[in-house]
Write a protein that binds this DNA or RNA. Structure first.
Length: 202
DNA sequence: CGATTTTGACCGGCGC
DNA sequence: GCGCCGGTCAAAATCG
């Protein structure tokens, strides 16, 4: 993959752009959902397939667009949007009291995929039954205690498993950026609030 | 020099 | 109670 975090042609080095690669989908593939908090999808035929982990569901979960030769990947926004709307009751919390948990399994060479939020790595741990270490990140926004874990699939290293825990209490800085770039690529970004922001979980 | 990452130590939950 | 394991802390190292 030709993406470079330090590429100065990319106005937002934390986002996923592919200014040089003619076919980023050849390298990147959002394959499926791994798991969610129990009950998120139950008994709702209007969203049939949203939570099913299979390759045929991929188009619904990926949100990559091309504009002016620039690719911009938005982290499965539409899918997560529905998920978090259905998490609104907040009745399910994990043992840490952080609330919702969502995991993705993606085919990617990059482990630290940018989802529009700014994260700080605070730990790395090797886990049992897996040759690959697990990385721990916290959202750096003040007062926001959302965390995520990133690890490579133990069975297929080409896949990355990302687990989000908690709900952001702020909008994504990436969303703000997208709304401010009409001249460069008016439709390149998905101008929606993050699915993990509080406004979509109420 | 401030921000970020690395990494070993520490802690709590859980099963035996 | 003890040991294993996953998660977090925090000091040191590294980076920009």
């Amino acid at each position: 993959m030709s993406f470079s975090p330090t590429d100065h042609s990319n106005p937002n080095p934390n986002s996923i752009f592919f200014p040089e690669n003619p076919d980023p989908m050849a390298d990147f593939e959002l394959s499926d959902y791994l798991m969610l908090d129990a009950g998120v999808f139950e008994d709702d035929t209007s969203e049939k397939g949203m939570g099913v982990a299979n390759e045929s569901a991929t188009p619904k979960h990926s949100n990559m667009q091309k504009n002016n030769g620039v690719f911009c990947f938005s982290f499965s926004l539409l899918s997560c949007l529905k998920i978090c709307r259905r998490c609104k009751s907040g009745e399910k919390k994990n043992k840490l009291g952080l609330g919702h948990r969502i995991a993705f399994r993606m085919k990617s060479e990059i482990e630290a995929m940018d989802d529009g939020y700014k994260w700080r790595k605070y730990g790395k741990k090797s886990v049992k039954n897996s040759p690959n270490p697990r990385n721990y990140y916290k959202c750096v926004s003040g007062g926001c205690n959302v965390k995520k874990r990133i690890e490579r699939d133990r069975d297929d290293k080409s896949y990355v498993i990302t687990t989000y825990e908690g709900v952001h209490n702020h909008e994504s800085p990436y969303t703000s950026y997208c709304n401010q770039m009409p001249l460069m690529a008016p439709n390149a970004c998905i101008s929606q609030p993050s699915p993990f922001s509080s406004s979509f979980s109420t």
